[in-house]
Write a protein that binds this DNA or RNA. Structure first.
Length: 630
DNA sequence: GACTATATCACCAACGGACA
DNA sequence: TGTCCGTTGGTGATATAGTC
């Protein structure tokens, strides 16, 4: 992203190379994620469907339809469309004007009518959410039994308690929101929007869904909306005792200083000179601190991108009792508190296995099990590792002085980063590991769960990064099956699939008595997998026991998704990142407060630019923005 | 054990009628 | 005309029962 003064902030987002390094099928933890993912690749999803309403002749004729063409175009909005609408709803206006709707329709390739309906439904959803909040909080007003619409003609307005509606009910929230919008003068086309609103309206597509609360230039409408939410929200919890100030990490100090210089400089020759000074300062500081002119970007579907500035870093699993890991890989019990260590030694990054279970490392000869205790392996660049189902990507960069740039380059004299070309044949770099000892799983006596509770358990719970609750389900069956088939080279029998899942996802399936049935169900009915059967004249042919592989449809979906990730950069991937798996803290507010997403992770963070999605582990060592040439 | 078929659930775009 | 409210129905994920 280019800033106004020409400095280019660069994030070497690693997902762009995921296809080439064997990125597994995306993991879906929520139905809507899965649906959104499937959407693009599945033409069937967009097909015209004939509903019962059509059969009964209930439905009105649509736009441009003839009498013989009574079909409902029923489709799910694409991810970017929903995101754009959601961002507009959250950051700009819950009541868009007709012009705004038309503009949205044009930009999101939707009909204005669809936009309108979406906003109606979205407001209903907001009210329901607010209603739940106030119900939990305001027992006096909401304690009355829920009125059923019985006896009321269809479509007649619900009887809302006037008291509730005036105070905290959903209607009240909406009304207040509406009043705010009206008060803003937005409905009056002659009233120009404030500069902040203009910015917001222009950038709604890229802006995060929930900007951080302490953002200085927060759009007025958001402030007002938040005020509305605060009115109906439960009283804030008592303030936590103040913690001792933690010294800023090096990168943060440098960045703050650099930002100060940059802010003071302005777009001038003097500014460029100051900028150079700043960059010199960064390099000198690194030299003083004996830090290598190298850093590694670490990221993955289960962790937020992290810029490694230290000489060593621990990968593992943090719990309330153990917080030794710099990067929390996942909540899986298969991840040790200290699972592996990345160290900068011998002028390159290496990874040392500390755990018994080890991990898999992608090499130019395929996946290698790294299981020997304290086995040190030079990291390929880029490196892909599989930590018991959690994939982690590492790419190393070095910082090169601007003097060595090509002549005539139009880019400003700043630091340039280039990936270190460092391909290792890992198979030659370490001894064959000892056989892995995996203790047998403890016999489980699952508690009797009701259907509803099981259903609830299947829904990923939005938990804070520090929340150690283990969500019962973190993988969909489709993604587990896909991982299994890919592990077996693209084809696997039912037995192999089940064995793989039972071994690698035992935490996911241990409480599911019938998980094998579900695997079978997904295999046969999802359409993502196909069974290869021997010809019937083959003597070894059997009626049963085919070999399963990912179907063209499934492959296409993976391809589509990967392309989308390439195009959308981290924002799209960050959105797919399940809330319960996010390991990093909230975004570092010091360098880009606008990038902070919702703290509970329950909604899309909407990170728009690659440099905004960076953060680190719970320790607070978030990665800094990286200065580079475009 | 290896499937297949069906039921159930949550989600959500779209609908119809009433209302402001 | 736009919005609200309740409803409808399509969709995928998962569970369950049944078959071979």
């Amino acid at each position: 992203m280019s800033t106004s003064d020409g400095v280019v902030i660069f994030c070497p987002f690693l997902f762009t190379n995921l296809t080439s390094v064997g990125y597994p099928i995306p993991q879906f933890r929520r139905t809507d994620q899965y649906a959104a993912f499937k959407k693009d690749g599945d033409s069937q999803m967009n097909r015209k469907v004939h509903g019962i309403a059509d059969l009964m002749g209930k439905r009105k004729k649509g736009e441009g339809e003839s009498d013989d063409d009574k079909v409902v175009v029923r489709r799910r909005l694409e991810l970017h469309q929903t995101q754009g609408l959601e961002n507009y709803f959250t950051t700009v206006d819950v009541y868009p004007t007709t012009e705004a709707k038309e503009k949205l329709a044009q930009e999101l390739d939707l009909k204005a009518e669809t936009i309108s309906k979406w906003f109606i439904n979205r407001r209903v959803k907001l009210r329901n959410e607010e209603g739940k909040k106030s119900k939990g909080n305001d027992s006096d007003e909401e304690a009355a039994p829920k009125e059923k619409p019985s006896g009321r003609s269809r479509g007649a307005p619900a009887k809302v308690s006037s008291k509730a509606s005036k105070v905290t009910g959903p209607r009240a929230v909406m009304a207040r929101t509406k009043n705010i919008v009206a008060a803003r003068g937005k409905s009056d086309p002659t009233t120009p929007a404030s500069p902040q609103e203009q910015i917001s309206e222009e950038s709604y597509k890229d802006s995060p869904a929930l900007p951080s609360a302490d953002e200085a230039d927060e759009p007025q409408v958001i402030k007002k909306k938040r005020k509305v939410e605060e009115i109906s929200a439960p009283p804030p919890p008592p303030p936590e005792p103040k913690k001792e100030p933690v010294p800023l990490p090096l990168w943060k100090e440098l960045y703050i200083e650099a930002e100060a210089i940059r802010a003071a400089a302005g777009p001038s020759a003097e500014h460029l000179a100051r900028q150079q000074l700043m960059l010199d300062h960064i390099l000198n500081t690194r030299k003083k601190q004996e830090l290598p002119p190298v850093f590694a970007m670490i990221t993955g579907p289960t962790i937020q991108p992290y810029r490694m500035e230290e000489l060593s870093l621990v990968l593992g699993r943090n719990t309330p009792a153990h917080r030794e890991a710099d990067i929390h890989v996942s909540n899986s019990a298969n991840i040790n508190h200290l699972h592996a260590k990345i160290v900068f030694e011998d002028n390159c990054y290496n990874i040392i296995n500390v755990s018994r279970r080890g991990f898999q490392l992608k090499t130019n000869k395929g996946w290698k099990e790294i299981t020997g205790h304290m086995v040190k392996v030079p990291l390929p660049n880029p490196a892909v590792m599989n930590f018991q189902g959690s994939f982690i990507f590492v790419q190393c960069f070095y910082i090169r002085d601007a003097d060595s740039l090509e002549e005539g380059s139009h880019v400003p004299p700043v630091i340039k980063m280039e990936p270190i070309v460092q391909i290792h044949d890992v198979s030659m770099s370490y001894e064959e590991p000892e056989p892995v000892y995996v203790p047998p799983p403890k016999p489980q006596t699952p508690a009797k769960a009701t259907k509803a509770s099981k259903r609830q358990a299947a829904i990923p719970v939005a938990v804070a990064a520090s929340d150690e609750r283990e969500t019962p389900k973190q993988w969909s069956y489709a993604s587990m099956i896909s991982a299994s088939i890919r592990h077996h080279g693209g084809e696997a029998t039912y037995k192999q699939i089940n064995e793989y899942i039972g071994e690698h996802f035992k935490d996911v399936v241990k409480d599911r008595r019938t998980w094998k049935n579900s695997v079978g169900g997904v295999l046969s009915s999802s359409g993502f997998f196909e069974s290869i059967r021997l010809p019937s004249d083959d003597p070894t042919s059997k009626k049963r026991g085919g070999i399963w592989r990912i179907s063209n449809r499934g492959d296409k979906l993976v391809e589509t998704e990967t392309t989308k990730q390439e195009e959308k950069a981290p924002a799209a991937v960050a959105e797919k990142r399940p809330p319960n798996m996010v390991s990093g803290p909230v975004q570092p507010e010091s360098y880009d407060s606008s990038s902070s997403g919702s703290s509970d992770g329950s909604s899309s963070s909407g990170e728009s630019d690659s440099e905004e999605s960076r953060s680190g582990p719970d320790s607070g060592d978030e990665g800094p923005p990286i200065l580079a040439m475009s």
